[in-house]
Design a binder for these strands. Structure first.
Length: 184
DNA sequence: ACGATGATGAAC
DNA sequence: TTCATCATCGTA
């Protein structure tokens, strides 16, 4: 079942762990690539120093300030696309970064946020599009069985040592022992 | 373990 | 104009 826009209209810290076990599905030339989300990170509002939104609205991050359920894709290090989903109320910049997925119907190397965007062909064209319908050939379906709370690990986020008091917040969520979770 | 990659935004 | 970044790969 497709997750509706209201699913995303909550804080990133609520949405991020609930996305674990859900299916991220991409359709390319009529072919379906089905994956399971196994690692996410929450970027929470205008005060989170790890978030792009902490320095206000810019050309790059403006979709974070829009409605929930919209895709935020940005290009970084001159090489990689990162795939996020906007959460929370309109005008409040909250988002969940999808860091890793497990491929279900193909053999693919998808661990890590830049690897998964490459394999699923997610690029700037998706920035600003909706994740809550199938029109864009990229959507998320509800988990068949919820991941048990004991198997959801909470940890500090990756690659944000600059974030001061926010760097130790346990806003990264991943499935215990899953081999597709990114390293570190 | 380190350098290359080279868009975007902030500091200078 | 220069510097750092929500990363990864090739080379050592």
């Amino acid at each position: 079942m497709l997750l509706s826009s209201s699913f995303y209209a909550r804080s990133a810290r609520e949405v991020a762990p609930e996305l674990l076990g859900c299916f991220l599905i991409r359709k390319i030339n009529g072919r379906i690539i089905k994956t399971k989300i196994v690692e996410t990170e929450a970027y929470c509002g205008p005060n989170d120093l790890a978030s792009h939104a902490s320095r206000g609205r810019t050309e790059r991050n403006k979709v974070m300030f829009g409605p929930a359920g919209i895709i935020y894709v940005y290009f970084t290090y001159g090489m990689h696309y990162m795939f996020n989903i906007v959460t929370g109320p309109t005008n409040y910049p909250d988002a969940v970064l999808i860091r890793a997925v497990e491929p279900l119907n193909k053999i693919l190397k998808t661990n890590g946020p830049a690897r998964l965007t490459k394999v699923l062909a997610i690029d700037k064209k998706f920035n600003g599009l909706a994740i809550y319908n199938k029109k864009n050939n990229l959507w998320i379906e509800k988990a068949e069985t919820k991941i048990k709370p004991a198997r959801i690990i909470k940890a500090a986020r990756i690659g944000i040592d600059y974030a001061g008091k926010y760097k130790n917040k346990k806003w990264r969520f991943y499935v215990k022992d899953n081999k597709y979770v990114s390293a570190k």
